[in-house]
Structures are given as C-alpha cells and as structure tokens.
C-alpha cells in the first residue's frame, strides 16, 4: 500500500477534515463533500463520499422499518422510506443500541402532514415501540395467582403490585390495537372501524410478547397499579372513567397476562 504522496503535501497546504465536519455533511445533501476528503491521487470524491451518506441514511431508514413493521406495511414501502428519511435527517439515534432508535417516531408521525389521513398511525407506532421495548425487557416470572388468593379479602384494597419490566399500557382514540394485531398477523383491515377507541396492554410472560385489547376502564386501572397505587385507588381511577368497570375481570386479565411480578410490600 503506497504512502500518501509526500510531494503533493509539500506542494500545497494539506486541508484537514475534522470528524465533526465529516458528520455534518453526512445527513445534509446540501453540503458539499468536505474539502480534504479525496479519492486516490487526490482526485475528487463526491460519489465516494456519497457511499457514506447513503450507508447512514439507508441503514437508519432500514432500522426504523424493522422497529415499525406495521407502520411500514400500512403506508407502503416508497411512502415509508420517504417519510423515514425526513425523520432520520432530524433525529439520529442517541445510542449504538439501534433497537432503542425512534422513541419519538410516533410524535413525528402526528405532525407529518402527508400521513394526516391515517389518524391511527401514530398510535400503531406507539404500540410497536411498546412491543419492541417489551421484547428486550428483563426476564421476570409473572405473579403467581396463589399469592393474591392468600391475601385476606379485607386487606386486598391496600395491596400494591410490582410491574413486570415488559408491561406497557397504550391508550388510543382509534382502533390502534385491532389494526396493529391484524397487520402483524397478515389479516386484512376490512372489518375494523378505525374510529372506535381502543386501549392495549403489552406484556411478556416468558419470551413471546402479547398484545391485548383492554375493556373500558382497565387501562386506567392497570396504569394506576403500574404507577404504584393501591388496588383500591386503581379501582377508583377505573370507575371514574368507566362506571361499569368490572374489577374481578380486570384482576383476572392482569394475572393471565403476567402484567405484574409480585405483591409489593407495604410502604
């Protein structure tokens, strides 16, 4: 491998490129190739520099497509790539853990004018983010129903629960859970009325992430428990939003889903 040409170094001032200069030009197609970035024999390197630009954009757009597969399918590949490129230019990952990328992609979608008609899209993205966070969450055995059964009935309302690391509650004004589930299982959306509000519960008992539609009031109930409130307080929060809230059914569902790992000791 030849050494860089020392004659040309003596003949002219060497242009120094900092990595900051290099990175500024990576995501801004308006910027020229940094002066001092060259091809062999000092020739111009625009197309060569574009390889890096392309690698960065394509790989980050690809990462978003993997994190948000339902959003990808719902809008189609061309639309998704154009939309994701806009996002990538303004928001780069803040960590080399790519599966954490795009935690505000749903907020970006809320404000993305060309996708405005798909009103449910941001909530589908929120569910997909919750799904991947649950997928990578720490392992923990779910609460044994016998532990709850052992509590005296008059003490039940005072109990607090420790949330499983995978548990997420996602509330939507649209049928985001049905759309997400149908899309991920390859079913068509024809029977779904997107205007019906749905809340979803994301859990992971062992290794498979599960997503359930919650009955009215259950989201407020579970969120209150996740936030550390007592069972009694959580039931009140649920009744406040849904008068017909069924407490026994909600407790049964939370145990079945493995949303909690333990009964917390009293504070």
């Amino acid at each position: 491998m030849p050494r860089p040409d020392s004659n040309s170094e003596a003949a002219k001032t060497v242009r120094t490129v900092t990595l900051g200069r290099f990175s500024d030009a990576l995501l801004d197609p308006e910027q020229p190739t940094p002066a001092g970035i060259v091809g062999p024999d000092g020739k111009k390197a625009d197309k060569r520099f574009d390889v890096y630009r392309n690698n960065v954009t394509v790989s980050l757009v690809g990462a978003l497509a993997e994190i948000y597969p339902a959003v990808h399918r719902l809008v189609g590949d061309d639309f998704f790539r154009a939309m994701a490129r806009t996002y990538v230019r303004s928001e780069q990952p803040k960590s080399p853990l790519l599966f954490r990328y795009g935690d505000d992609f749903a907020d970006f979608l809320e404000g993305f004018e060309p996708a405005k008609k798909l009103v449910y899209l941001p909530d589908v993205a929120r569910l997909e983010r919750a799904w991947l966070d649950a997928f990578h969450a720490a392992d923990a055995p779910p609460l044994d129903p016998a532990a709850l059964a052992a509590i005296a009935p008059d003490e039940l309302a005072e109990q607090r629960f420790k949330a499983h690391p995978a548990t997420r509650v996602v509330c939507s004004r649209f049928a985001a859970v049905s759309i997400f589930s149908a899309n991920r299982s390859g079913a068509d959306l024809s029977g779904i009325d997107p205007a019906i509000a749905e809340d979803g519960l994301v859990t992971r008992r062992d290794f498979d992430v599960e997503v359930r539609t919650l009955p009215e009031g259950a989201a407020a109930f579970l969120q209150a428990l996740v936030d550390g409130n007592t069972l009694g307080e959580a039931a009140e929060a649920a009744v406040a939003v849904a008068q017909k809230f069924d407490l026994a059914a909600a407790i049964g569902a939370m145990l079945e889903a493995g949303a909690f790992t333990a009964i917390a000791t009293k504070d």
């Binding site: 120094t16 290099f22 890096y52 980050l60 990462a63 990952p93 803040k94 080399p96």
Partner: peptide, 18 residues
C-alpha cells in the same frame, strides 16, 4: 472506525485519517 459524534450514532463504520 468511528460511528458516533456529538451523541449522534450513524450506524456506519466511518473512516479515520491516518
């Protein structure tokens, strides 16, 4: 190579000057 600058991670193996 480098892949992070000013907290942004570029997910590519970028070159360094020798």
């Amino acid at each position: 190579a480098w892949s992070t600058h000013d907290l942004s991670y570029y997910n590519d193996l970028l070159p360094v000057p020798y």
